[in-house]
Nucleic acid binder design. Structure first.
Length: 625
DNA sequence: TGTTCCACTTAGTAAAAGTGCT
DNA sequence: AGCACTTTTACTAAGTGGAACA
């Protein structure tokens, strides 16, 4: 397409005072439905108690689901009465799909590309809409496919069947004069709306949680951009009020009115520990809490002023913090826990997010609990960035930027599960560091071989020669040799495979033998060194200076690898993305990029650059939050 | 005055895409 | 070109908060 030539609409250069009206005209092509269920071939069946089962087609689609039995009955039952799930044998069906999967995988790269481009072409028209006459991207234009509901944490509805959505379930929203996208053959839309006070293009209701789902504009759209901008401007406005708010809640720690005390303590927790508002949750949802819904058992008090928070927050992510709090906060928490209160009871029994937000509105219209998270996240980022010296390589500056980002993520308790490959990766890097260290020691030993007197004149330089035990050196050598062997063998088989496809004569086995023999010799040499500590110097042109500069290079590599290792470890359970996407004012990143001369590409991915184009273009190197 | 509904933002994870090696 | 890993994007669940409803 000709995307790059198209003039990008710079909404931030226009002012827009009316945000009640979301659009003046809106045309789009509707939504993309998931592919129909492809019926199984007649020889692939579910077996019940060894007998083949003819399933209704809807039940066939959800074969394997928890409430499978229910779906079978709902659709008229099967030829066999299914009573016990244990007797169901899904293996034929499973195998069928496994075969299809591997068939797909075995396609050539060209075939895969072909399929992909067909798919892209088909989806193209759903990706964009016309918003006020301008072409803008649509977000999630795909209708969610049927499947099992995967709740987070221990959700009472985990595993229920999320039903297939038909056009009859979907309402569209567009201009009155916009053509109505034709529904799929033989179907009707549920409803056509023309409501320009809302920002959705399509909506339907999901059957498991009974919640409304929407098709919205993409993150880089003018509409989303404007609302993001407003969010950060509101958080910046809070700067002007935060001192008074803090003064007031400290005063109200001693209020005679219980509600005021609870409000004061809750505001303190939201402000200092970045807790969420914490609305009430229903019986059929996961038991998670935020500030206002904290219960007796979530807070443990340790005099004189230590509090242990331990609860499941949004997405059932654990919040565990042992912290020191303001002395009056401690006393108040003790009061809020006083008998007859017991486990299961609300800590803030007079308070709801609504009451709290109403109170906050008095300071600043539009101020609510969530604004504090945005404010404190961006404030923390600004403070952290201010500490970074403007020096060093781009890579080093990026590492420091990420460290600042991490502070914010920790404040907001943004976690992720440790990647599966993490422990292995850590092992690999630390092995590598020890290997580099060993290579460095060998160089230093060589230096002494060339000039023994240096040991006396530069003793500190050779101190670390004793830092490696014979056992460890042996272990490192073994690893190095094993790696060399593997490398040689792998290269040999690979080369031969290539020759085989070319119908060329293969390399003789002897060639590999030869290589391996060389490696054996190297191993013997190392083994000797283990005792003598005198590595053989193979080149006649070697000088002390040359070796010293090699040592320096190794030291730089060790420093880099150590930083990498530290970074990996620190990031293993912290998710940086969420705060970058939602909480840190992107103008801070734009400022950092300009002031520290770090290309924005190193800080923002392509989608983030698109989402935050307004920030990148409007903030200079002096911008402050 | 509490509850439900609606619209939207925020969230972690699965899947896709990219990268850096041989 | 393929592997092994990392980064980015897509997906959709789970929050927030204001308005409508009872």
């Amino acid at each position: 397409m000709k995307d790059e030539e198209e003039e990008k609409y710079k909404w931030w250069e226009e002012n827009n005072d009316n945000d009640e009206i979301k659009w003046h005209s809106l045309k789009h092509n509707g939504v993309l439905f998931p592919p129909e269920h492809v019926p199984l071939p007649s020889h692939v069946k579910l077996y019940y108690d060894k007998k083949p089962v003819d399933l209704p087609i809807q039940a066939e689609e959800v074969a394997c689901f928890f409430d499978f039995k229910k779906i079978v009955l709902e659709h008229g039952g099967a030829n066999v009465e299914i009573e016990s799930f244990d007797k169901c044998d899904f293996s034929k069906i499973f195998d069928h799909y496994e075969t299809q999967k591997s068939l797909k995988k075995s396609l050539t790269a060209a075939q895969k590309r072909e399929i992909k481009s067909e798919k892209d072409k088909f989806e193209e028209k759903y990706k964009y809409c016309l918003l006020n006459g301008r072409r803008e991207r649509v977000g999630n234009f795909r209708i969610e496919p049927p499947g099992l509901f995967r709740g987070r944490g221990s959700h009472p509805k985990t595993g229920r069947v999320k039903k297939r959505i038909y056009p009859e379930d979907v309402s569209l929203n567009l201009s009155e004069d916009a053509p109505i996208p034709p529904p799929p053959e033989g179907h009707q839309w549920k409803e056509i709306k023309h409501d320009n006070t809302v920002a959705w293009l399509a909506t339907w209701r999901e059957n498991v949680t009974n919640t409304v789902k929407y098709v919205l504009f993409a993150a880089d759209s003018s509409l989303k951009g404007r609302s993001d901008f407003k969010k950060f401007e509101k958080a910046r406005e809070l700067k002007k009020y935060i001192h008074r708010i803090r003064k007031d809640y400290k005063k109200n720690f001693s209020s005679k009115v219980m509600l005021e005390r609870q409000m004061a303590v809750a505001t303190y927790l939201i402000d200092v520990f970045a807790l969420r508002a914490g609305g009430e949750k229903a019986e059929d949802e996961a038991d998670t809490v935020g500030c206002c819904s904290l219960r007796y058992e979530h807070v443990t008090l340790k005099p004189p002023n230590t509090v242990v928070f331990d609860f499941l927050g949004k997405d059932s992510i654990r919040y565990y913090q042992e912290v020191n709090v303001h002395e009056k906060v401690f006393k108040n928490l003790r009061l809020f826990k006083k008998s007859p209160k017991q486990p299961g009871d609300d800590l803030f029994d007079r308070l709801t997010p609504n009451i709290l937000n109403k109170h906050l509105q008095n300071y600043l219209p539009g101020l609510s609990a969530k604004v504090f998270r945005t404010y404190n996240a961006s404030k923390t980022m600004q403070d952290q960035l201010d500490l970074i010296p403007n020096e060093g390589s781009v890579g080093e500056k990026v590492v420091k930027y990420n460290a600042a980002n991490r502070e914010v993520a920790i404040l907001c308790n943004h976690q992720r599960t440790k990647p599966k490959s993490h422990d292995m990766g850590v092992q690999r890097i630390s092995d590598n560091i020890r290997e580099l260290f060993w290579q460095k020691l060998r160089l230093k030993r060589m230096i002494l071989e060339l000039d023994k007197s240096l040991k006396k004149t530069k003793p500190y330089y050779f101190e670390e020669l004793d830092d490696l035990s014979v056992e460890e050196e042996q272990a490192i050598q073994d690893r190095v040799i094993a790696k060399e062997r593997e490398k040689a063998t792998k290269k040999f088989t690979r080369d031969n495979e290539k020759l085989k496809t070319e119908d060329s004569p293969l390399l003789p086995e002897a060639m590999l033998e030869e290589k391996l023999k060389k490696i054996d010799e190297l191993a013997a040499e190392y083994k000797k060194e283990l005792k003598t500590r005198k590595p053989e110097i193979k080149s006649v042109t070697v000088t002390v200076e040359k070796l010293e500069s090699q040592v320096e290079k190794l030291e730089q590599r060790i420093r880099n690898a150590t930083l990498l290792l530290q970074d990996k470890e620190d990031n293993s359970q912290v998710a940086l993305g969420t705060s970058k996407l939602n909480y840190i004012d992107p103008r801070l990143t734009a400022m950092f990029s300009k002031k520290y001369d770090v290309p924005i590409e190193k800080l923002f991915s392509k989608t983030l650059r698109e989402k935050f184009a307004w920030a990148i273009e409007s903030a200079d190197e002096n911008w402050t939050f």
